[in-house]
């Protein structure tokens, strides 16, 4: 077993604008099962952060418990990380984000972590429009504890154990839409052409960006009767449309590829180009997104791509009117204004 990845990389691989190599965004060698979809998502995150030229030290990776939640070890090894408690990633992310609003927050969770034990935390962080990327690596099972059905398993889907799941699944994208998420997407670990631009847009989005990524558990839930296996996902994937992400730095030219429908400018000036949408689909219409998801589910298809985006809603900091600097940048007098200020606050409450 190899525990170390060789250090050589393709000689033609260029550094990004900051001078970082893609290797600077890698983590340690994965210990997940060979063939796990989660590893592809890690690779997509590495690629996205590299292409966005995010300084690795300005990223915080926060996760719960599960194979999916282990993955932050396998990407962005030079970034900050917090592997928290099962289902509690959102509260840790919220705390960190409130303390330092300048960092990029990547929350990684699983379907077990988010749709079962952490459902409450998931709901509230969504409502608050916390500025973060929240990725669920959705394999329809509890991989780490040997493949029990999770709350996202479809009715009738059967894992390695062979018993069809009898319960109605939770659709996390639908929930996120209902709870006010300002960016919602769905993708598949095996489709980096779609996943990478989606992650880049989600990171650039100011506010709560949720991506549900179908990510097959190759060991426990990649059976022919599973709706979260590689084959099923490939055969039943449909997309709202192709999406391109154009970073701010790149000059936006007028010549779009054929099929272009419209563009959405994000808060930081970067632009999302949308192509050949599902007829009549409007990524700015929350209700329509929910309806379309439902319609596809009924057809037995998995609707992927960017489902909803509103780049202009206030995020948690704006709603709260917090100080616009990270706490670490405040001086002692600002952080501890003294007994006279306390007196003033107290008298206000009398």
């Amino acid at each position: 077993m190899s525990y170390i990845r060789p250090n050589f990389r393709h000689p033609e691989l260029q550094a990004n604008e900051l001078g970082y190599a893609r290797k600077d965004y890698e983590g340690s060698l994965s210990t997940l099962c060979a063939g796990c979809g989660h590893d592809s998502i890690s690779a997509a995150i590495i690629q996205s952060c590299f292409e966005l030229a995010i300084p690795p030290h300005s990223v915080a990776k926060i996760s719960g418990i599960g194979c999916s939640s282990k993955t932050p070890t396998y990407f962005l090894g030079k970034s900050h990380g917090f592997n928290s408690v099962h289902g509690r990633m959102p509260s840790v992310a919220t705390g960190a984000n409130l303390a330092n609003r300048d960092m990029v927050y990547i929350g990684v969770s699983g379907d077990g972590d988010s749709a079962s034990i952490g459902l409450g935390q998931f709901a509230h962080v969504t409502r608050r429009n916390l500025n973060m990327l929240y990725i669920v690596e959705n394999n329809g099972c509890y991989g780490l504890t040997k493949g029990q059905d999770s709350a996202t398993a479809d009715v009738g889907s059967a894992s390695k154990k062979g018993v069809p799941n009898p319960y109605e699944p939770i659709d996390l994208c639908t929930m996120a839409l209902q709870l006010g998420a300002t960016f919602v997407g769905r993708s598949f670990s095996g489709d980096k052409n779609q996943l990478v631009p989606l992650i880049k847009a989600a990171i650039s989005h100011r506010g709560f960006a949720f991506i549900d990524v179908i990510s097959p558990c190759v060991t426990f839930n990649n059976t022919v009767q599973s709706t979260k296996g590689y084959e099923y996902a490939r055969e039943h994937m449909a997309a709202t449309g192709k999406m391109d992400f154009v970073p701010v730095r790149q000059e936006i030219t007028a010549d779009y590829e054929p099929g272009f429908t419209h563009e959405i400018t994000l808060h930081d000036g970067s632009v999302v180009h949308l192509y050949k949408q599902e007829p009549g689909f409007d990524a700015n219409d929350r209700n329509q997104a929910i309806r379309t998801l439902q319609a596809y589910k009924q057809k037995g298809e998995i609707l992927t791509g960017l489902l909803y985006i509103d780049p202009d809603l206030e995020d948690f900091h704006e709603i709260q009117g917090t100080v616009n600097k990270p706490l670490r940048d405040l001086g002692a007098t600002e952080l501890c204004p003294g007994s006279r200020s306390l007196e003033a606050i107290n008298s206000n409450l009398r």
């Binding site: 990389r9 994965s30 063939g35 590893d39 592809s40 690779a43 095996g190 190759v218």
Partner: peptide
């Protein structure tokens, strides 16, 4: 091959 991409992701030299 089940086209899981694992080899693509791990290959150090792409």
């Amino acid at each position: 091959c089940i086209e899981c991409d694992a080899c693509v992701d791990i290959c150090p030299t792409d």
